[in-house]
Design a protein around this nucleic acid. Structure first.
Length: 412
RNA sequence: GGAGAGGUCGCAUAGUGGUCUAGUGCGCCGCCUUGGAAAGGCGGUAUACCGUAAGGUAUCGAGGGUUCAAAUCCCUCCCUCUCCGCCA
């Protein structure tokens, strides 16, 4: 959530920021009005409580009784206003960074650069769905049979490739000082909600467990952010850098269309996620650092890509700025998203109450996340970019020591 | 899943209805003392909200309840430990 003090003192700036994200400005006036009511009631209630405490210590039972009655009238009113206030406050998204390009939707995202040249094939390149089938490494039929559509089984070299990608990412990033972590694949509602992954609504992502306050995580961002909820760091502990491994589960409600066939949009995949807790002064740098690591990974894999800077309309509620990497996908003759890195500034930290001590005062940390490897989409890029005329697929050199083979050959 | 014991201000503990705005010890910070240090002494040492401030309020795992008054009594839930069951 946003800082209520910022909204009070800078309401015009907040209005402008949320408007650029496509959020109605009136919410700001609404929240300020509720805030005013809330503060008045808090004062009244606190006063009554003070009197009541005094009466209790003086054993003035009659007065205590009167004050109790008054409190019982006002207190529910305060609770109601507080709940309304919070509800509206939660609807306000994080403000975009000052230099974030302004735009309505994904069509106005900015291509920052393109790296690598898409390979020219002297044959008709196949898509990963066909390649996966021919190589007998990806099996959507069994996935659909056992679990449902958009689920898959991996076999043989497909398994080794997925594990190799994870090992490669873990190894590279632990050298960069990231702490490797395997987190639970489930989290309590507070954490998937606090990180912005809703189980309900138009863009619902999270699967929830019946009769439990648990949901399947959409990314290790949820668990890595939750890990330090309600904690206060010493300033010299920061930055803390994690590289988290988890399975990711996404309902993808309402998402369908031309890319719903194959691995591009699936309900479960595996991901190595980078996550940084840092001070406000360093977050922009850290964000760029995560992007540079993502680029390094795709460069080492030898996959052509482009970097996109997301415009205000496509940032999502949590992010102040966001970069995506899109890898070249010959199967569809287009770039397709493979990583995303967001600077959520103090927005998630305020949701989850994560702070640090700075010159004796506590301040909210900044939290930044970024994909290292999302196996499903990375496998698309590898299969499609490195396919050969004979139907085999070459394995990027950096992965070979983990796969144990340098090529996947079609089975009969 | 069952039985038992617990969850208190960084840590360890005290507290079983009003004297708790939570005591004590340790740790930490500052000052005094010292040539310097240790020891000792003194003071301080959570978070949030309201308030220009003085000050006030809330928080003893969480949430409800009883009471003029709850860390303390009642209910529900969560977590930890020990044992049992089940199990990779």
């Amino acid at each position: 959530m946003l800082d209520i003090n910022l909204i009070r003192e800078n309401s015009e700036k907040v209005k402008k920021g949320i408007a650029n994200k496509g959020c109605p400005e009136v919410l700001v006036d609404k929240v300020l009005d509720l805030d005013k009511q809330r503060r008045e009631l808090i004062q009244k209630v606190d006063e009554l409580r003070a009197d009541s405490n005094k009466a209790a210590s003086e054993r003035d039972i009659e007065k205590g009784r009167q004050l109790k009655e008054e409190l019982q009238k006002i207190d529910p009113e305060l609770e109601k206003i507080k709940a309304e206030f919070e509800e509206v406050l939660m609807q306000l998204p994080n403000l975009p960074a000052d230099n974030t390009p302004i735009g309505k939707n994904e069509s106005e995202n900015k291509v920052m650069r393109q790296v690598g040249t898409p390979a020219k094939f002297n044959f008709e390149p196949k898509d990963h769905f066909t390649l996966g089938q021919n190589l007998k490494i990806i099996d959507f039929e069994s996935g659909a049979k056992v679990t449902g559509s958009q689920f898959y089984f991996l076999y043989n070299e497909g398994v080794m490739l997925e594990l190799a990608l994870i090992q490669y990412a873990m190894s590279l990033l632990s050298k960069e000082g990231f702490i490797p972590v395997i987190t639970p694949d489930l989290a309590k509602s507070r954490f998937y909600l606090g990180t912005g992954y809703a189980p309900k609504g138009d863009e619902a992502q999270t699967y929830t467990i019946n009769d439990e306050d648990l949901g399947l995580i959409a990314t290790a961002e949820v668990t890595l952010a939750g890990k330090h909820a309600d904690e206060i760091f010493a300033e010299d502990q920061l930055p803390i850098k994690y590289i988290g491994y988890s399975h990711c589960f996404r309902k993808e409600a309402g998402a369908y269309g031309k890319y719903s066939k194959g691995l591009y949009r699936v309900h479960q995949f595996t991901k190595a996620e980078m996550f940084i807790y840092c001070t406000p002064e360093t977050s922009v740098k850290m964000h760029e650092y995560l992007l540079s690591l993502e680029e390094k990974i795709y460069q080492e894999l030898g996959i052509p890509y482009q970097v996109l800077e997301m415009c205000t309309g496509d940032l999502g509620a949590m992010a102040a700025s966001k970069f995506d990497i899109e890898a070249w996908m010959p199967g569809r003759q287009e770039y397709g998203e493979v990583t995303s890195t967001s600077n959520c500034t103090d927005y998630q930290a305020r949701n989850l109450n994560i702070k640090f001590k700075h010159e004796g005062k506590t301040e909210f940390v900044h939290m930044i996340n970024g994909t290292a490897i999302a196996t499903s989409r990375c496998i698309i890029a590898i299969l499609e970019n490195f396919q050969q005329e004979d139907g085999s697929v070459l394995i990027p050199e950096v992965l070979q020591k983990y796969t144990g083979f340098d090529r996947i050959i079609p089975k009969k």
